[in-house]
C-alpha cells in the first residue's frame, strides 16, 4: 500500500502591481495572472505624483494584457467623499467600459454603485475595507455580490483557514511588499501630519510633504511636514518616510525607538504552501509605487516559486531581500501576532 499523499493544492493566481503601463507590461511578461492598477486621481489608494493610468493608457494596457491571457483589475479603493462621489462612479464606469476584469473597492457606496449599475462587473473587496471577520465578509457578499476579499495583513494562516470555511467568496492575501501594522483603511497618521488622507485622498506620506536633509555627520534626516520622523546613520538602511515606521524620542526611553513598526517588508515565501492549503485563491504582491525593475524581479521570482510549490518543491525567495524596505523581511502576523 502506498503512503498517504498530501492533499493536492489548487494553483493560486498571482496578482501583481503596476503603477505605470511599462510596469504593467513587465508584470504580464514576467508571468502575472492578473495585474492591478489605478487611475490618476483620488479614487485609488496609491495616488502618487507621476504615477498611475489615464483612461487611454488603461485601455491600451488592458488590450496588451488580454491578448496575453492576463487579467487587469482596477483599484477604485479609496473612500468617496461628499460631494465628490461622482469621481468614484466615473472610475467604475471607465473600468466597465474598458472591460476590466474586476474593480477593487473599499467604500460601500462605491460597491453599491457597482452592484446596481454594472452587475456583470466582478467586484473585489479591497484590503482598505478592513474586512477581517466572516460576518463582515458575508455582509459584503450578500449586499453587493463581492466575489473576492483581499484580507487585511493582521490575520494568521490558521485564522485565514477558519475564515475560508465560513465565507462564500474567494480569498486574496498579500505575500510580498510593504507591510504596516495599522488597521488598513482606518489609519489617519498621515492625515494628522499633512492634512492629506491615505483613505480619502489616496496617498500615504505625500511626497510633497517629504524632505530628506543630509546632516554634517553624513546622517540623513527624513522629515514629514514639520516633523522629523527618522534619522539614518551614514551607512544605515533607510525605509519609507511613513509615520508608522518612524523612530522617535520619548522621555521614557533612552535614545530613539520604533514606536510602531520598523522598516521591513513582508515576504511569505516559506508560508506559500500553508496559505494555499488554507484556501487562498490569489497571492498578491504589493508595490504599485515601485519601478518596473522591481515588478519584473518580484513577479518572476514568485511565478517560479508558485510553479515549484505546485510541483512539490520548496520555494526559495531569499533573492528578494535586496528589494525589501530596510533590507529586512518578515512573515508578520501571518505567522505570529507577536512578530514585533
Amino acid at each position: 500500500m502506498s503512503p498517504p499523499q498530501p492533499p493536492r493544492l489548487n494553483r493560486p493566481e498571482l496578482i501583481c502591481p503596476a503603477g505605470t503601463p511599462a510596469a504593467l507590461r513587465a508584470a504580464v511578461d514576467a508571468g502575472a495572472d492578473a495585474v492591478y492598477c489605478g487611475l490618476q486621481n483620488a479614487t485609488n489608494a496609491r495616488n502618487f505624483p507621476g504615477l498611475n493610468f489615464t483612461p487611454d493608457a488603461l485601455a491600451q494596457s488592458i488590450t496588451y494584457a488580454h491578448e496575453r491571457d492576463t487579467k487587469v483589475l482596477l483599484a477604485v479603493n479609496s473612500f468617496a467623499t461628499a460631494p465628490g462621489a461622482k469621481l468614484w462612479q466615473d472610475a467604475v464606469d471607465i473600468a466597465a467600459s474598458l472591460n476590466a476584469d474586476a474593480v477593487i473597492v473599499a467604500d460601500i457606496g462605491v460597491a453599491q454603485y457597482v452592484a446596481e449599475n454594472h452587475p456583470g462587473l466582478r467586484l473585489h473587496l479591497s484590503v482598505q475595507a478592513g474586512a477581517s471577520s466572516p460576518e463582515a465578509i458575508r455582509y459584503y457578499c450578500r449586499e453587493f455580490g463581492v466575489s473576492r476579499v483581499v484580507l487585511p495583513r493582521i490575520l494568521t494562516v490558521t485564522e485565514i483557514s477558519a475564515i475560508h470555511d465560513e465565507i462564500p467568496c474567494e480569498i486574496e492575501a498579500f505575500v510580498f511588499g510593504n507591510i504596516g501594522m495599522m488597521a488598513e483603511g482606518r489609519c489617519s497618521l498621515t492625515n494628522y501630519v499633512t492634512g492629506q488622507s491615505t483613505n480619502m485622498d489616496g496617498v500615504c506620506s505625500p511626497a510633497s510633504a517629504v524632505q530628506y536633509v543630509k546632516n554634517a555627520d553624513e546622517s540623513l534626516a527624513a522629515k514629514l511636514g514639520e516633523f522629523e520622523i527618522d534619522c539614518f546613520a551614514e551607512n544605515e538602511s533607510a525605509g519609507y518616510p511613513t509615520i508608522c515606521k518612524g523612530r522617535y524620542l520619548t522621555p521614557a526611553r533612552s535614545g530613539t525607538y520604533y514606536a510602531f513598526e520598523e522598516p521591513v517588508s513582508l515576504n511569505l515565501s516559506s508560508l506559500l504552501p500553508e496559505l494555499v492549503g488554507a484556501g487562498v485563491t490569489a497571492l498578491k504582491i504589493e508595490g504599485r509605487q515601485r519601478s518596473r525593475s522591481y515588478v519584473r524581479a518580484v513577479v518572476s521570482a514568485y511565478r517560479e516559486a508558485i510553479d515549484d510549490i505546485m510541483e512539490g518543491a520548496e520555494a526559495d525567495l531569499s533573492v528578494l531581500i535586496s528589494l525589501t524596505e530596510g533590507g529586512k523581511q518578515t512573515e508578520g502576523a501571518f505567522k505570529s501576532k507577536k512578530w514585533r
Partner: peptide, 21 residues
C-alpha cells in the same frame, strides 16, 4: 530601466534632496 530606485534609496546608494515630489 534596470534598477529599482526605492531599493537603491533604502540601501543608501541613491540620495534625494530638495523637492521630493
Amino acid at each position: 530601466g534596470d534598477g529599482d530606485s526605492d531599493a537603491l534609496f533604502f540601501a543608501r546608494d541613491v540620495e534625494v534632496g530638495g523637492n521630493t515630489e
